[in-house]
């Protein structure tokens, strides 16, 4: 499971970094989304990977059978914030497209 998760994070980060270095705003936004998925999975990963372990604490419960709840709450916050800022970026992207007539990140095409 660790291997699958780390390959997933690696592939998404690699593609994300490649895409945010591309000159089109659409590529950049897809790249940022991929990167944020990778980061969210990464946060999950630092809590330790466990299957079928609830993040709940009862009296007398064995801590080793439970999942760490903190990374889960961190991930939830990160998802919400990441979603909101990506939506904001989308608005700016459209405004830039409307004002300049091109989807190049610099607002103008490279002279040929």
């Amino acid at each position: 499971m660790e291997l699958v998760l780390s390959i997933g994070i690696g592939v998404m980060t690699g593609s994300g970094v490649w895409l945010i270095l591309r000159p089109r705003t659409y590529q950049v936004i897809v790249g940022l989304s991929l990167l944020s998925y990778a980061v969210n999975l990464f946060i999950f990963g630092v809590g330790g990977l466990k299957v079928n372990a609830p993040p709940l604490l009862g009296t007398g419960a064995d801590v080793s059978t439970l999942a760490d709840p903190v990374p889960q709450s961190l991930v939830l916050t990160a998802i919400v914030i990441g979603f909101a800022t990506t939506a904001l970026f989308l608005v700016v992207l459209l405004a830039s497209r409307g004002l300049t007539g091109t989807d190049h990140v610099d607002g103008k095409e490279r002279p040929k």
Partner: peptide, 10 residues
């Protein structure tokens, strides 16, 4: 501003 804002955002 939109151009500078785009870069700042990314």
């Amino acid at each position: 501003r939109v151009k500078a804002g785009l870069h700042y955002l990314v």
